[in-house]
């Protein structure tokens, strides 16, 4: 059973209310269908106004779909009382939204309290979560949000969202307002947390680097529709259209090559006789393989598996063709492969 499934979800905001005119507005989200598997980290990626936040906010009914259905853990979201639905879905937003009149511990305890947890359990959980987000409980428990840096506030925001151990987390550009260095730290920590607790995450961002770093699956959105949904490497190597290609910056050959494993582009057969015996690992990325070829000034290398057995070969020509064909295509469409 998928953790979340979207079925023909459409959202049209009331035109009269928002624009003061009665001319029809285009749908903010149009006919979106896809499934999110349990424990997967799914990034909704797209430019601002593409409907990614709207789509995310429909999962916990902060925005009601105009039509279509959303199932969470096999139940349609409207079959669950809305407060109960929300208490079982973690919610993290860019501006954090900590309650300024409550201490860090009180903020984290909000949902456990709503769920009627005993005090001792809530306290234990609070300390556990503060440890998880690398804020020593003894030092931070009693602080007020104003006494924390932006990065620390968002750590508390994440801890608060995870307080009642929800299976699903919704995260709306959680690191968007945080400086680049702290952002990278937080991304690393989020990945580490995710490896430990394995939540189903829907993460909204317009930052391509962030999406590529974090995602198991990326849903690329444009003008309310999902234009492509798949693994990051698939999006890079087989972008569905020019929009995905441009958005992912497929022009950046090196980044693209660094995300593709050698295994994906190797050819069968042995090296031609008499060539020096250069090898690359099948699990290495193509960028590393390219470096090996250049360093040894050769046209091809043998591909070996973990045991050192030769399982194919990789050629410079193939790397150029496969790794960079999107670039060639983007620049001069008629020369594409």
């Amino acid at each position: 059973m998928p953790a979340i499934s979207f079925t023909e979800v459409t959202k049209v905001f009331d035109a009269g209310k928002n624009t003061g005119t009665d001319s029809g507005r285009p749908a903010a989200v149009r006919d979106v269908s896809f499934e999110v598997e349990q424990g997967q980290f799914v990034v909704l990626l797209g430019p601002s106004g593409c409907g990614k936040t709207t789509l995310m906010r429909m999962v916990n009914r902060l925005i009601e779909p105009t039509s279509g259905s959303i199932d969470v853990e096999g139940r349609e979201i409207h079959d669950i009382p809305v407060t109960e639905l929300r208490r079982h879905i973690g919610y993290v937003i860019q501006q954090v939204g900590l309650f300024p009149h409550m201490t860090v511990a009180q903020n984290i305890a909000v949902v456990p309290k709503l769920l009627g947890w005993p005090k001792s359990r809530t306290e234990q959980r609070t300390d556990e979560l503060l440890d998880l987000v690398a804020l020593p409980p003894a030092e931070y428990r009693k602080r007020f949000p104003r006494q924390l840096s932006g990065g620390q506030q968002q750590r508390v925001g994440i801890a608060r969202a995870m307080a009642a151990d929800p299976a699903i987390m919704l995260m709306d550009e959680p690191f968007g307002a945080i400086d680049a260095i702290t952002r990278t730290d937080l991304q690393d920590e989020l990945l580490a947390i995710q490896r430990k607790v394995s939540k189903t995450v829907i993460f909204v961002t317009h930052d391509v680097e962030e999406a590529l770093r974090l995602a198991d699956r990326i849903a690329v959105m444009r003008t309310g529709t999902v234009v492509q949904y798949g693994r990051p490497v698939d999006l890079l190597t087989h972008p569905a259209d020019d929009f995905v290609r441009a958005l992912l910056g497929t022009n950046d050959v090196f980044r693209q090559l660094s995300l593709v494993p050698v295994r994906a582009i190797m050819e069968s057969g042995q090296l031609s006789a008499g060539k020096p015996d250069i090898t690359v690992q099948a699990d290495q990325n193509v960028r590393a393989a390219l470096a090996v070829l250049i360093a040894h000034d050769v046209q091809e290398a043998a591909v070996v598996d973990k045991s050192g057995k030769t399982i194919g070969r990789v050629t410079l020509q193939r790397i150029l063709d496969e790794g960079a064909h999107e670039v060639a295509e983007a620049r001069a469409p008629d020369t594409g492969t």
């Binding site: 407060t83 929300r86 937003i93 939204g97 309650f99 300024p100 909000v110 709503l114 919704l170």
Partner: peptide, 27 residues
């Protein structure tokens, strides 16, 4: 009262009455 804070409270599953009593009035 910061609408972001109210949005967070809604998203966490507070009822309108709880938002009033626990968030809006105290703030």
């Amino acid at each position: 009262v910061d609408p972001i804070v109210v949005d967070a409270a809604r998203g966490m599953g507070m009822s309108p009455l709880q938002i009033m009593v626990k968030i809006k009035y105290p703030l």
